[in-house]
Design a protein around this nucleic acid. Sequence first.
DNA 1: TTTTGAGTTGTTCGA
DNA 2: GTCGAACAACTCAAA
Length: 489
Amino acid sequence: MVSMRSPLTVGVQPSARVDPQGIAQRRAPRRRTVWSVTAVHWFRRDLRLGDNPALLSAADAGDGSVVPLFVLDPALWNPAGDVRRAYLNASLRALDADMDGALHLRRGDPVEAVVAVARSAGASSVHVAADTGPYGRRRDAAVERALADAGIAMVRTGCAYAVPPGNVRTKQGTPYSVFTPFSRAWREHGWPDPAPTPAGVRWAEPRGRADDLYTDPDLGDLRLPTAGEKTALDRWAAFRDAGDEGLDGYAERRDRPDLAGTSVLSHHLKWGEIHPRTILADQGGRRGDGPTTYRSELAWREFYADVLWHHPASARAYYRDEYARMAYDSPDHLVDAWREGRTGYPFVDAGMRQLRTEGWMHNRVRMVVASFLVKDLHVEWQHGARHFMRWLRDADLASNSHGWQWAAGSGTDAAPYFRVFNPVSQGRRFDPDGTYVRRYVPELAHLDGATAHEPWTVDDGYAHGYPRRVVDHAEERAEALRRYQAMRG
DNA sequence: TTTTGAGTTGTTCGA
DNA sequence: GTCGAACAACTCAAA
């Protein structure tokens, strides 16, 4: 640990009290001294002020002044789709507003940008929440080395999960590869209470009103929800308190894309506008199927982060490598039809169009469209995963890659061999009135009830230009099982 | 080491 | 319409 004190060379802002959660504030402002040490808090996927242990550690590290920094890293920015870029911009603006315009924004390689900012601020430490993803770990190791060369410490506190990946182990000390035993051990492991919101932080110069760095993409008709910590906390509270239409009814309604049965917090969780620990603590010991099932969904998020932590290559490569030997088709015009929502299977097309109009898709439908790409079109899951990463506003590498591997059968699921989703029966089961389909597929708006799932059964089913089915599901299901058998044999 | 119980989300067929 | 069995026999985690 480097202890380097330097003259206060940066301006100091008046205290900005931040208390978006109503959590009791902990610290009184420290007295200002001439000899002072500031700290840098490098935001990444923790775009919030409340329940942020890393920010707290930055506030505690020096004299109470903090340089709040975000670096637009071309390695992440360039491959991201416009949806993710736009949402990130909005989230950064919200964070900036919560800090009274203090956010310091840089664009460039973090190895250079973070060191440069820390140096110019005279900081002796840079504080972060650990990034547990494959790229983030490499990047942070490189930044840590560069900071060390400059005599500056990098301090990791917390991460984006209730239990840091790598910490839930079997009795033999090995990582879990099956969800249910993982979730049991995860629950027993437990997690810390939420951290208090730092009080009396002085956001240090250089202030970062760098609007020119926000390059907002043109999203056309796509509308994104409001970003930011306050919205996330409000959204959670509304879901928590909505009774059977929210958390209490979650177990029953979560699989229904026609209903508003889910919390829709995924994009907030992705950027850390809310931390799962906040939710788990706020849920307290609430019983019932709703809260239990909701906690289980958070456990899935943690499970996949844990799997990716132990197997970084599984972000792109088959978790079970025998699946690399299976026969696949190259993406062709059928995959274009899938991407554009004109496969002729209404439930699939509704989902793919929801993705393009909202940057989001209901989880049940994600599974159905994923199964369709992999099992009906026989295309490798990576093609679908890339499309999702491009269009989903909540795109998260661990959840996305392993969600797709689950659908492909190559992931952590223990018994995947005979599971092929039928897009019609899935639609009839989870969108029984056809409401969801009609909402996103106007060519089927004239069909009543569940008929919207089967336009081929009525005379006027194709009267408004809805496309015919591009493949026969029964045939392709059989073909998928044949290829699976051939791979095993 | 061996055994045992269990595994997110399914589909189809035939009684 | 509803129900249970078959699918095909695997892999994991704990005792």
